[in-house]
Each structure stands twice: as structure tokens, then as C-alpha cells.
């Protein structure tokens, strides 16, 4: 097999788009390379040109504006996301997700943008982005556009970007008052493992902090794409924010999940875990919505 490919590191989005378009299907964006370089080495993906995005200033920028929300450049490493004070304050589920990808060395390189574009059903940053209402900003030969992250992945390893298009940034809306979010995953090992099941939850409470005004739930590793548990989330609206409601939401999430059995977990185990992880993620989101901290 031929593992050789060219390498370019443009410093503008326009130049990157041009290289990607000219390179056709053999050209691939390179962010942290923690998925791509491994996949190329094992012949899982092919490329004849890697377009390194890390030298484009916009892609490495993080900007939080209290009126506008968060703009997270597509090539910002997970470690920087997990350490960023504004992200820690306002988007805790994203900190949960970005903070458990790989180990400390992987997180210095791996990006949230790469996690999304790799489009793995088990990508730990994707369910948090979905429940936080993130939009993906895409640049391409025909200009730029935004799509909700919830519709970005279309199959295992597949996303909706066309030839010549790339992810520029993720946009997260300002957090609403009395809201909280949380992402949890189940893995046999504490570190350096891939989710058997993961669940992200976002909750917004009413003024009394006792009832749920709005909710979103997204799951990893239980379907060909990161999955929105719409029925469970909608059911929660207007219900008391308590463990009974969360248990029922967990049951409804189980009905939505379409897991397979594989080396990481059997089908019944995954289904069981969907209930457990959904419930716990909701509990975490509730505590944060009330202003409590839940990290160790």
C-alpha cells in the first residue's frame, strides 16, 4: 500500500479551500492528526495531500462574547478547550467531553473540530456540542454557511461536507439563565478508552429551580451517528426536575437508542447503560443548573 502523501500548511482559509478543491477526493484536512494519521497508516483512509489547518489564525482562536456566545476555532486542541475559563464557566458539558478524549498528550493535539469531522459514533465531543446547541461554520468554494451540529454526521465516519469544504469554527449560543449541562461516558478503563455509551444532557430550569423548562439529550456509541434523544428530552419539559423524571427520561432514551453489540459492549449492556448514563448526565446537568460544581 502507498502511504506517501504531500503536505501543505496554508495560512488562510481561502488558500486551504483552494488546496482542498484542487486536490479533489485525495486531499484531506489535517487538524491534530490523532485520528487521521492512524487511519492513513492502517489503510483505513487514503490521501495524497494533507492540508494542515493549524497555521490558519481563525481556526486556532477561541472567542467568548457575553452577547454572542462562543466561537471555537476548528483546530483548537482539546486541552485548551478543557482549560479555558469561559468554556469552563458556561459550557461544562464541552469541558467534560474534550477533557476525556485520549490522555494528556493526545489532548494537546486532538481537536474538537477533528472529533466532529471524524464523525465517529463514539466521538466524545459531539454529544456535548449537540446539547449545547452548537452550529458548525463551514467554508467552501461557494462561500460559507452554518449548519446545526446535530445534522453534521450522516453515518459512521461520514459527514455532510462536500469536496473543498472545511469546518472553520463551532458557534455555541450564550447559555440561558438557570441552565446546566453534563457529559458522561462509560468505559471499562478510567483513562485512554473509548466510550461504550456516552450521554450528554442540557437542562434549563424554571425560576423556582424545581421544574424543567427545556431539555436536550444526545448519546454516543448507540447508533451509526451521535444520536439526539428527542422523545426523552421533550417529555421532560414541564416535569419536576427530580430523579423520577430522570429515570423515565432514561427509559425513553433506551427506546430511541439503536446500539449494536461489539468488542466494547454487548447490545443488552449498551441498552442498560443508555438508561444509567442518561439519568446521571441529567443529574449532573441539574446540579450545574443550580450552580453546584460536580467535578472531583
Amino acid at each position: 500500500m502507498n502511504f506517501s502523501y504531500g503536505y501543505r500548511a496554508p495560512d488562510t482559509i481561502a488558500e486551504a479551500v483552494r488546496l482542498l478543491q484542487e486536490g479533489g477526493s485525495g486531499a484531506r484536512p489535517l487538524a491534530g492528526g490523532t485520528d487521521l494519521l492512524v487511519q492513513l497508516r492502517h489503510g483505513i483512509r487514503q490521501a495524497d495531500l494533507l492540508v494542515d489547518l493549524k497555521r490558519i489564525p481563525e481556526l486556532s482562536a477561541v472567542r467568548y462574547d457575553p452577547a454572542d456566545g462562543l466561537t471555537l476555532g476548528a483546530a483548537v486542541p482539546c486541552a485548551d478547550v478543557a482549560d479555558h475559563p469561559d468554556i469552563r464557566a458556561h459550557y461544562p458539558a464541552l469541558v467534560d467531553g474534550a477533557g476525556i478524549i485520549g490522555g494528556s498528550a493526545i489532548r494537546q493535539r486532538a481537536t474538537v473540530g477533528g472529533n466532529l469531522c471524524n464523525a465517529s459514533p463514539s466521538g466524545d465531543a459531539i454529544p456535548p456540542l449537540i446539547v449545547l446547541g452548537a452550529e458548525a461554520e463551514i467554508a467552501g468554494p461557494n462561500g460559507s454557511c452554518r449548519v446545526p451540529v446535530s445534522s453534521f454526521c450522516v453515518g459512521p465516519g461520514l459527514h455532510l461536507l462536500d469536496q473543498g469544504e472545511m469546518l472553520v469554527a463551532l458557534h455555541l449560543p450564550i447559555p440561558s439563565p438557570r441552565s446546566g449541562s453534563c457529559y458522561l461516558r462509560f468505559t471499562p478503563r478510567g483513562e485512554m478508552d473509548i466510550a461504550v455509551v456516552g450521554a450528554a444532557a442540557w437542562l434549563q430550569l424554571d425560576e423556582s429551580l424545581s421544574y424543567i423548562e427545556d431539555a436536550r439529550i444526545a448519546l454516543s456509541a448507540v447508533a451509526p451517528v451521535p444520536l439526539v434523544a428527542e422523545t426523552a428530552a421533550t417529555w421532560l419539559i414541564g416535569r419536576p426536575a427530580d430523579s423520577e423524571s430522570f429515570a423515565q427520561a432514561g427509559r425513553l432514551a433506551q427506546e430511541t437508542a439503536r446500539p449494536i453489540g461489539d468488542v466494547r459492549g454487548t447490545l443488552p449492556q449498551r441498552l442498560h447503560l443508555v438508561g444509567v448514563m442518561t439519568r446521571r448526565a441529567l443529574q449532573g446537568a441539574l446540579r450545574r443548573a443550580k450552580g453546584e460544581t460536580i467535578d472531583g
Partner: peptide, 29 residues
């Protein structure tokens, strides 16, 4: 392991811990 899993290839790249098996030489420019 040549796969990012073992850390035996660790280096500091601009002061950051990195698995050098998952960095291209060209990226060190």
C-alpha cells in the same frame, strides 16, 4: 506502538506534550 497509545515517543513540541508518532516531521517546521 506507533499509534498514540503508549507514550514511548513523547516529546515536547512548543512546550506541549506530544506523541511524536502522531506528528509529521513537516509540522515541526
Amino acid at each position: 506502538c506507533n499509534d498514540g497509545n503508549c507514550g514511548a515517543c513523547s516529546v515536547l513540541l512548543d512546550g506541549r506534550l506530544a506523541n511524536s508518532c502522531l506528528v509529521l516531521g513537516a509540522e515541526a517546521d
